[in-house]
């Protein structure tokens, strides 16, 4: 069950392209910014990809884990003076713990309740950030978050940040691929399509889901930590339900449960949002209608569409 040769080649070409891409855009702060945001959203989309793609559940609370990652990274680097990278790791672990903790009640319940409880979680986190002013500074937010320092190297420019994000995207993807091809990934997929049958086959549904939530929120937290130091300032309104819905849309547009899906979905939406800024008032209306239309016409996202095209072509070749 390894990669096929074609998958390997496509993957390598994509990575090579990703590595050389900023060389052409180095002069454009505008595009470098979009690339970096897309990168952070790719990681964030991978986090929901676990929950939706591997367990079939919908979360609209990912912004909560993103916020935990962002605020804890900021707090550890600014408040305690810890180096960025250990701080990022600790923040991601904290987000993972929050995910497991939320998973304890959430994994006992069916799909409908799950959406609700994640929504509640995201709102609880946002409300706490908003109101716990002594620590989070409420609506003023946390400002002047220092850029990451790697030994003597200060990762400050958008160009340098691009490679930092790219590194973490690769880590995220490697982990995603290795989870999918492991006993944990199989247990999740079996639980997704037949929880009771999987249970009878010896799969503990609770631990399977908790592991899923843990990995998922770890990466949401990681994305949050990257975001905090990249933007340099964070405030509660950046972490509302709309962000969680964005992540959901990115997951669906790309094609959930696949490895290329989150990359395609996040990149497409970051750019689409940017280009539609001209029609700002109507943008969100189109966006909402777009979600419904995607569900009607391409429920398996762009990856599903590609797969269908491929199937049509290969069935023609046979004839």
């Amino acid at each position: 069950m390894g990669f096929t040769k074609r998958q390997m080649i496509v993957t390598l070409i994509c990575f090579a392209a990703a590595v050389v891409l900023p060389i052409f855009f180095r002069g454009s702060r505008y595009y470098m910014n979009l690339f970096n945001l897309a990168g952070i959203f790719i990681i964030l989309t991978f986090s929901l990809n676990y929950i939706h793609g591997y367990l079939g559940l919908i979360s609209i609370g990912q912004a909560g884990f993103f916020a935990i990652g962002a605020y804890i990274t900021a707090g550890l680097t600014m408040g305690l003076g810890i180096n960025y990278f250990p701080a990022l790791l600790l923040a991601s672990i904290a987000a993972a713990l929050a995910g497991v903790l939320l998973g304890l009640p959430a994994s006992r319940i069916g799909g409908h309740y799950f959406v609700l409880i994640t929504l509640a979680f995201g709102e609880i986190v946002r409300l706490i950030i908003l109101n716990w002013k002594e620590v989070t500074h409420g609506t003023n937010g946390v400002n002047n978050i220092p850029p990451p320092r790697l030994g003597p190297l200060l990762i400050e420019s958008r160009f340098a940040y691009y490679y930092l994000v790219l590194f973490f995207i690769i880590v995220t993807m490697v982990v995603a691929a290795s989870v999918r091809r492991s006993k944990y990934g199989r247990s999740m997929l079996a639980t997704k399509v037949g929880e009771l049958a999987a249970n009878v086959m010896g799969i503990n549904p609770l631990s399977t889901k908790l592991i899923n939530f843990g990995i998922s929120s770890f990466f949401a937290g990681l994305a949050g930590g990257l975001y905090a130091s990249y933007i340099g300032s964070i405030s509660p309104e950046a972490f509302d339900v709309d962000l969680s819905v964005d992540i959901l849309t990115m997951t669906l547009v790309g094609g959930s449960g696949t490895i290329p899906g989150p990359v395609i979905g996040a990149t497409a939406l970051v750019f689409l949002k940017e280009w539609l800024r001209a029609v700002k008032e109507y943008y969100m209306i189109i966006y909402g209608a777009g979600i419904v239309l995607i569900m009607i016409f391409m429920p398996y996202g762009i990856m599903g569409l590609l797969r269908r095209v491929r199937d049509v072509i290969s069935s023609r070749e046979v004839r």
Partner: peptide
């Protein structure tokens, strides 16, 4: 699958709110 309908309703809610 039911999930599809739930997500569509999230889309509709964004459409209506905005």
């Amino acid at each position: 699958p039911v999930v599809t309908v739930i997500i569509a309703s999230i889309g509709l809610s964004i459409l209506l709110r905005n």
